[in-house]
């Protein structure tokens, strides 16, 4: 709980070059017609407050978050900005294999590869089945699979996220701690890359620096997706059911 609060008010990530505008002095006579400095200051304040690190209560859908549509209307409605946050790590906590957790990303991967952005799969647990990817519209020329020993997966993922030449990086990290995930999150932030981390459901109880945490579990008939944490979001439904 504490971490999500800290993330919501990440004031330290403000751009250093943006000077904090000084409020118009109280001594300004109220009769002054159309106080120009005050108007400019309000505009400047608005630009500062539009920083995604600052959250303000306002109507949904006006967020300045850079996002990548997920391709699922119901999920997009749930996510602030209407899609996966760019330059952030999304953590998918999966109960079992075969719940549709990877297919959830297929529209995103298809959109990215068709835009000639590279998609990197770091140490996938099984064989990513090329015909299935192609059927979903993924352009296989822009998909790269990287085999890495489990001691190298974090390093590989960080290099890919930091480089800025990948559209999306998918990692399978069964064992990772807060510090390692934090490095990945920072790497994603620095380059603006989409990062997806698949972790077992047991990791849901641990604190995580990821911008978005999605719990994927079995429901009565279908798969339940539940937002455990989401940067820049207030209230509303937190879960949806797909694949009935």
């Amino acid at each position: 709980m504490f971490t999500s609060t800290a993330d919501l008010f990440a004031l330290d990530s403000l751009p250093a070059s943006t000077a904090w505008p000084v409020a118009a002095p109280a001594t300004t006579p109220a009769s002054a017609p159309a106080s120009v400095p005050a108007a400019r200051n309000t505009a400047a304040l608005d630009t500062v407050l539009r920083h995604p690190g600052i959250w303000r209560r306002r109507a949904p859908g006006t967020s300045a978050l850079a996002t990548q549509p997920s391709g699922h209307a119901a999920l997009d409605a749930l996510l602030p900005g209407g899609g996966w946050p760019r330059g952030a790590l999304c953590e998918l906590l999966v109960e079992h294999d075969g719940l549709g957790e990877c297919s959830l990303l297929l529209p995103t991967l298809a959109a990215l590869t068709q835009a000639r952005r590279r998609v990197v799969l770091v140490a996938p647990p099984y064989v990513p089945y090329a015909p299935a990817l192609a059927a979903a519209g993924v352009d296989l020329r822009h998909v790269v699979q990287i085999d890495a020993a489990h001691t190298d997966t974090h390093w590989t993922a960080e290099q890919c996220l930091r480089s800025g030449c990948c559209g999306a990086v998918l990692d399978w990290l069964p064992r990772s701690d807060y510090r390692e995930l934090r490095r990945l999150q920072l790497a994603a932030e620095s380059s603006g890359t989409l990062g997806f981390v698949f972790r077992p459901l047991a990791a849901a109880d641990q604190a995580s620096p990821c911008a978005l945490r999605l719990r994927i579990t079995t429901a009565m008939n279908g798969t339940q997706f539940e937002l455990l944490k989401c940067r820049g979001r207030l209230g509303g439904a937190t879960s949806l059911r797909l694949r009935a």
Binding site: A130, V144, W155, T156, S163, C166
Partner: peptide, 23 residues
């Protein structure tokens, strides 16, 4: 940031020549 050839070379240098595949 790195461009893709530079990143691929860096990954290959550490992970081995056969670590990167296309599908």
């Amino acid at each position: 940031g790195l461009d893709w050839p530079a990143l691929a070379e860096r990954l290959r240098a550490r992970l081995g020549d056969g670590a990167l595949h296309g599908l």
